[in-house]
């Protein structure tokens, strides 16, 4: 049986932190309260995020035109050009998606596939507490450095939407007999209520993605502004700025800790486990 951590333990500069991801940036606070810089988003994550974003802007504008051609330039093949751009953007979108998919397996713990799927009970519990937090049913939150449990679930859905959007998009290309899509995706209309079904789904998904983007951007700004945790800049520069004790506590803050705490059932026992963990480090 070991003793509780001492004040000194907690004031030790690197106490309980996975050394490779955390750098202290501010020594004016007690070490546990001070903000540290955490490198969360690696380059491929940031790159694909912005390529995807750019492609989606283009796809949404050109897609809306295809759906309802509201203007044309006399003498120009306006629709042909718009559809061409839509397809170029579609290919960029797909390329970005392929890279991001690769990174699901090659990236750090914040961008791995496991960050999107509740793989343990703690993660699942966080889905509940996160929902309660959003509904103003609870004030506190489990700490997370990467995606929170709800956001990651949303991203999972969004990734699926992207996939279906890509399938329907290329199925629409295939409807014209364009190979290889006609052969590869000839089955798509039959599972989507026919050719018109494919179009409607493609069209509806655009709206779903736009709705997600509004929520996503809005809350990025909101969270960043209110929490001042560097969320906005993180997707540009890669790092977040978080209180030290938060990093220690966070599910994805230290994988070493995770294996221990995830077995616990409630906040109290989790806190105890954390304390135990800190003690055993000594």
């Amino acid at each position: 049986m070991t003793t509780l951590p001492t004040q000194a333990d907690l004031h030790a500069p690197e106490a309980g932190l996975p050394a490779n991801v955390v750098r202290p940036i501010d020594q004016s606070l007690p070490p546990m309260m001070e903000r540290v810089r955490v490198y969360v988003w690696e380059i491929p994550v940031r790159l694909t995020h912005w390529v995807t974003f750019a492609a989606l802007v283009v796809l949404t504008i050109t897609g809306s035109y295809i759906a309802d051609p509201f203007f044309f330039t006399p003498g120009q093949d306006t629709m042909r050009l718009v559809r061409f751009i839509h397809l170029v953007a579609a290919f960029s979108f797909v390329a970005s998606g392929v890279l991001r998919t690769y990174w699901l397996f090659a990236g750090n713990q914040f961008s791995r596939w496991s960050a999107f799927i509740p793989t343990n009970r703690r993660h699942l519990r966080e889905v509940v507490s996160q929902t309660q937090f959003y509904l103003f049913l609870r004030k506190d939150l489990p700490g997370i450095l990467g995606h929170n449990a709800l956001a990651s679930g949303t991203y999972l859905v969004v990734f699926l939407l992207f996939l279906v959007q890509t399938l329907t998009g290329f199925a629409l290309v295939g409807i014209h007999g364009t190979q290889p899509w006609a052969t590869l995706l000839g089955w798509v209309p039959s599972v989507m209520f026919g050719e018109q079904g494919v179009r409607v789904i493609h069209h509806l998904l655009m709206w779903a993605i736009v709705a997600f983007a509004i929520h996503h951007v809005y809350s990025a700004i909101l969270v960043d502004h209110i929490e001042r945790n560097g969320l906005m800049s993180s997707i540009f520069a890669g790092s977040k700025f978080v209180a030290r004790w938060r990093v220690i506590e966070a599910r994805d803050g230290g994988i070493a800790l995770d294996s221990l705490v995830s077995k616990q059932d409630d906040d109290e026992s989790r806190a105890e486990a954390l304390a135990t963990a800190l003690r055993t480090r000594e």
């Binding site: 004031h11 700490g143 997370i144 929490e227 938060r246 304390a275």
Partner: peptide
């Protein structure tokens, strides 16, 4: 906490009150 105090995680009520700090939900 400016003066050395008990660690936040040892005091769950204190932690709750400051819980939004460092939150990374998106």
């Amino acid at each position: 906490v400016s003066a050395p105090v008990a660690p936040p995680m040892a005091d769950s009520s204190a932690r709750s009150d400051s819980s939004t700090e460092g939150r990374t939900d998106r």
